[in-house]
Amino acid sequence: MSFGAYFFLAVLEGTVSAFVLALTALGLSLVFGVMRVVNVAHGELFMLGAVIAWWVSQMAGDPLSGFLLALVVGPLLVGGIAIAADWAILKRVDYNPEATIVATIGLLYIIQQSVLILYGPDARAVEAPFYFRVQFPWFGYSGYKLIVAALSAGLLLATWYLLKKTRLGLYMRATQYDQETAQAFGVPVRRVYAAVFALGGGLAALAGVLVVPIQQAHYLMGHDPLLLSFIVVIIGGLGSLRGTLIAAFVIGISDGVISVFFSPTLAKILATLLVALVLVVRPGGLFGAKPA
């Protein structure tokens, strides 16, 4: 294959990764932006989505119905777990930023070890719901991966619609800006927090459901999405949704290109160096609030 073909393949791979990463990081960014909670357990919610997809695929008759069912059951179950965690843990520590970091580290291990006990240590494959290849002039490419990108784009648009066009979205944005004044205008801030934590978890779970036919489900699979989401959210600016999306595409596509031409490890090293650079030059992130 020519350099151009390789480059196109790398960009394609990177774009698919970017869409999934944007979905995962958007959940983390929303939770931080509205609740000021750094959810260290976010990657485990991604992993739960993947494990639930495997579980549902075992019960469903065929891969397509398993996949469609998982797209509904995954985010609902994980969203429910997130609401329970909000009520049982975050609310108890009064959403104190430092305490919630420690609390979500605890949640990370609780979820991870529970999955290890119930699901086991093995990586398990989930059959893709569709098998077709899109033929480009230089190579054929997985149709399922393109559908993952399209579904992720649809979910990102749906999240944008929720935030910009609905009452709940307006409540979320008002709470993000000033939770005390929001309460003075009838916004049930605690319920908004629970909804945001559920939405963040649900988005991560959806990303997990979408990637499991590509990656396999494993109880330790939450680490990479967590690290990449933090990279994206820090570069984009904590709490900035626009910044999160832009950073997800910068990191996702550059990760794809560097991984194809050099190595995935180099891609992670460069992304981490970029985070360090952003933290030094612009601690609030490229699109976050400038420090006072």
Binding site: L170, Y177, T181, A184, G186, P188
Partner: peptide, 28 residues
């Protein structure tokens, strides 16, 4: 009552320093 239920009963507030939701539009 929780704070968010009080405004609907008829108490409205203009805070010190306005405390508008600055990133939201006037309409919002």
């Amino acid at each position: 009552l929780p704070a968010h239920r009080i405004p609907a009963l008829g108490l409205a507030y203009v805070p010190q320093g306005r405390r508008l939701f600055g990133e939201l539009s006037v309409e919002e």
